[in-house]
Each structure stands twice: as C-alpha cells, then as structure tokens.
Simulated scan of single mutants.
Amino acid sequence: MENKMLVVTTENIPGRKYEVIGEVFGVTTQSKNFASVFGAGLKSMVGGEIMAFTKMLTTSREVALDRLREEAGKLDADAVVMMRFDSGSIAGDMQSVVAYGTAVKFVD
C-alpha cells in the first residue's frame, strides 16, 4: 500500500488554504547485526563511508516517514506541513529516527 499524502518541509503549500489538525510523529529504531557492527568498526580504522549504517539510516527515514503519513491519515489529514527529521543513537549500534510535522486539512 503506497501512501501519496503530501508531506512538505515548508509552512505553506502554494495555492492551498488549510486548517491545522495537530502534530503527528513517525518513529523507528533500527540496529545492525553483530557482523555489520564489527565490519563498521574495522572500516572506521581506515576511514570512508560505512555503507551498512548509511543503508540503515536511509531505511529508518523511509519507515519514519511512512509512519508519519499513517498517523496523519488516522486524523483524516490531507497533508503534513513543516516536516522535520530528528535522530539519535542508542547504545552505540542502534539509531532512532523520528519524522514529525503538523497535520492539516484543506479548506479550499
């Protein structure tokens, strides 16, 4: 199921008027397996991009955004404005990502 709800990082949507419904969040926490973490430790000694963690963060952002859209849909929103991402690490090998914004309903 693909959710096509409009999500923007801006406060305004050109040509649209809306009323605010409320804040919405989408959260996920991901971790890598021991082999990936071990390999990342080795890679950090020589430098360069650690692809396993890059992929994990990319997936985390996609999951968080999907969950944000789901939460906005539950509120019967038409769009989400002022969307932002925030992230933080937990215990070194886990990453938590949250997508948050304001759910709105079009009035025009």
Rank of each mutant, 00 (worst) to 15 (best):
I13S: 11
K4C: 00
D76R: 14
I21K: 09
V107P: 07
G92N: 08
T9F: 07
V63L: 05
D108H: 00
E23Y: 12
R69D: 06
E62S: 13
K105V: 04
T58K: 09
V27T: 14
S60V: 01
G26P: 02
S60W: 02
G26V: 04
M45E: 14
A40C: 03
A40S: 13
G22A: 13
K4P: 01
V80P: 05
M83Y: 06
K32H: 03
K17L: 13
S96C: 01
I50D: 15
R84G: 11
E23R: 15
T10D: 15
D86L: 04
S36R: 02
T29G: 05
A72Q: 08
E49I: 01
K4Q: 11
V7I: 10
K4H: 04
A52S: 15
V81P: 11
K17N: 15
V81K: 10
M51P: 00
G92K: 03
M56D: 00
A40Q: 07
L65Y: 01
K43Q: 14
G15P: 04
I50K: 09
A79F: 12
A40P: 02
A64P: 06
G41I: 06
F25M: 02
S60F: 07
I13W: 09
K55T: 09
A52M: 02
S44I: 06
A103S: 10
A91Q: 08
K105D: 04
Y18T: 11
L57V: 09
A35H: 03
G92P: 12
F38L: 13
I90N: 07
M1S: 07
E19S: 13
G88T: 08
L42N: 11
R16M: 14
A77E: 05
S31Y: 05
R67D: 04
S60I: 01
A79P: 09
G41F: 08
V24P: 04
T102M: 14
V8E: 07
S31H: 10
N3W: 05
D93I: 05
M1Y: 00
K43H: 06
V80W: 06
Y18V: 11
E19T: 13
G101V: 06
S31M: 12
A40L: 08
G39V: 00
K17M: 13
G47Q: 07
K4A: 02
T58C: 03
A35F: 08
E49C: 00
M83D: 02
E11S: 13
G39C: 01
A77L: 12
T9V: 05
M51K: 15
A64R: 02
M83I: 02
N33T: 11
A91D: 15
Q95H: 08
D78V: 08
E70C: 07
V107N: 04
G22K: 10
D93N: 09
R61E: 12
F25V: 04
S60H: 04
L57G: 06
V8C: 10
N3Y: 03
T59D: 13
S60T: 06
F34S: 05
V46A: 10
A103Y: 08
F53H: 06
L75V: 05
F34V: 04
G48N: 07
